[in-house]
Amino acid sequence: MQTDMTLVFIGIWIIIATWLLQWAVAAAVKAKQPGAIPGKVPENISHDSPVFRCHRTFMNTLENVPMFLATVFLGLFLGLESDWFGYWVMLFAIARILHMALYYAIATEKNPSPRSWFFVLGAVANVAVLVQCAMQLWSF
Rank of each mutant, 00 (worst) to 15 (best):
D4Q: 06
T6D: 11
T6M: 14
L7A: 14
I10S: 10
G11A: 12
G11Q: 02
G11E: 06
I12Q: 04
W13V: 15
A17Q: 04
W19G: 04
Q22S: 07
A24R: 07
V25E: 07
V25K: 00
A26I: 04
V29N: 10
K32M: 00
K32S: 11
K32R: 08
Q33T: 10
P34E: 15
A36M: 06
G39V: 00
V41C: 14
I45E: 01
I45W: 09
H47S: 15
H47L: 05
P50I: 05
V51T: 08
C54T: 10
R56P: 04
T61G: 14
E63W: 06
N64S: 13
P66L: 10
A70C: 06
T71A: 08
G75F: 03
L78Q: 06
G79S: 07
L80V: 06
S82V: 09
S82F: 07
D83F: 15
W84P: 02
Y87W: 15
L91M: 05
L91S: 03
I94A: 04
A95S: 01
R96D: 08
R96E: 05
I97Y: 11
M100K: 01
Y104K: 12
Y104F: 13
A105T: 09
A107R: 07
K110M: 13
N111W: 15
P112N: 13
P112T: 12
S113Q: 00
R115T: 02
S116C: 09
W117L: 14
F118W: 08
F119S: 05
V120W: 11
A125T: 03
N126D: 14
V127L: 13
V127S: 13
L130W: 15
Q132Y: 10
C133Q: 08
S139P: 13
